[in-house]
């Protein structure tokens, strides 16, 4: 059975903060951060936005492109590391809001930044097995960066949603592969507001080892080489890592730029590579080959090979495109407003 994406959608907050605005508060050198991280600004969720609200809007866009009834969706999986509740699923609210309840399987996934691609991986498998007709997989985050920490320059917000099925596909998922080990590069303990990370250790033994591991294994499994693809997208914790890992694998800058949203968006964690894929699908043509590889700390990567189908042309304009969300209606914040939005100001009870 051929399985793949029936509909896809994205959603981003409108608020932004520039690297210079954060750097001036902490006495940091903005040009060196901008050059070092290849970041210019990041999205910031409004106080009335969270993973649930972003996921619902992305799911609605995916439904608009899929042109199916929500009642046909047999599974709703939301991957995130910033679920609004510690106990109470994100997915039930999303399913209720889009009208997919009650005959639906639902779970919240967590695996740092690869929880969204995990949901895609599982939905694809459930459709392929014949257990469900359609599955909704969402990667969404309103990620946290401690004040003054390097993560504060990149931790942002956004959501991408995919409806997986076996008919009327906009792209087939030809192969997928997972690669993971126990690697303590980034974590957040229970009741802690901000995550901790192991600095430079998050690079070679973590991001690069797992992204290269999953990508090389999938390329070998498929018998394809980087030159066979029109587009490639990797997890993007900053601007530098995805470009570097792409080049290490043999991809060229032109293949990577379409899905490289991070310089203007920041790191949307579970939404990162899935959002990059939505930007690619927005402009892809039938027959295009796409390579995608996520990364989640802890650590692991999910890699996918997709082929775009003829139906992409009718689906692309049925919902807002990701670059439009990224480039239009932006509202810039000063650091004080940003601190209030992200609840970094403690008020007296």
């Amino acid at each position: 059975m051929t399985v793949g994406i029936v509909g896809y959608g994205a959603h981003l907050p409108r608020h932004r903060i520039k690297v210079e605005e954060i750097a001036k508060v902490w006495g940091a050198d903005a040009p060196s951060y901008k050059k070092g991280l290849e970041l210019r600004e990041k999205s910031v969720p409004a106080p009335d936005q969270d993973v649930i609200t972003l996921a619902v809007e992305a799911a609605r866009n995916a439904l608009a492109r899929a042109q199916i009834g929500a009642q046909e969706i047999g599974a709703v999986y939301v991957g995130s590391e910033s679920h609004p509740y510690a106990v109470k699923p994100t997915g039930t609210v999303v399913a209720e809001a889009i009208g997919a309840v009650p005959n639906c399987h639902c779970a919240d996934f967590e695996f740092a930044c690869k929880a969204g691609s995990e949901a895609m991986f599982v939905c694809t498998g459930l459709v392929k097995s014949g257990y469900i007709k359609y599955g909704l997989a969402i990667g969404a985050d309103t990620s946290q960066g401690a004040p003054g920490d390097a993560l504060e320059y990149s931790a942002s917000a956004g959501a991408a949603a995919y409806i997986m099925g076996s008919e009327n596909l906009v792209a087939t998922i030809d192969l997928q592969h997972s690669f993971m080990t126990d690697t303590p590069d980034f974590w957040r303990r229970e009741y802690q507001h901000y995550p901790q990370h192991a600095g430079r250790y998050t690079g070679e033994p973590a991001y690069f080892k797992h992204t290269l591991g999953a990508s090389k294994a999938l390329l070998e499994k498929s018998g394809m080489k980087p030159a066979d693809f029109d587009f490639a997208v990797f997890h993007q914790p900053n601007g530098k890592f995805p470009m570097r890992v792409g080049k290490m694998l043999g991809f060229k800058r032109e293949q990577l730029e379409t899905g490289w949203l991070v310089p203007l968006l920041g790191n949307t964690y579970s939404g990162a590579s899935p959002l990059g894929l939505t930007a690619i699908l927005d402009i892809a043509k039938p027959g295009n080959k796409i390579f995608m590889c996520s990364y989640g700390s802890g650590s692991g990567s999910d890699a996918f090979i997709l082929t775009v189908t003829d139906r992409i042309r009718e689906a692309q304009d049925r919902a807002v495109k990701t670059r439009k969300l990224l480039d239009e209606n932006k509202i810039y914040l000063e650091y004080g407003e940003y601190a209030k939005f992200r609840k970094k100001i403690l008020k007296a009870e």
Binding site: A46, P47, D48, Q49, D50, I52, T53, V56, E57, R60, P84, Y85, V93, A97
Partner: peptide
Amino acid sequence: LEFRKIYDEGASGIINY
């Protein structure tokens, strides 16, 4: 119309959307 948080019932209460 967008799906948004309307208010929450305190830090430990339910979130109303």
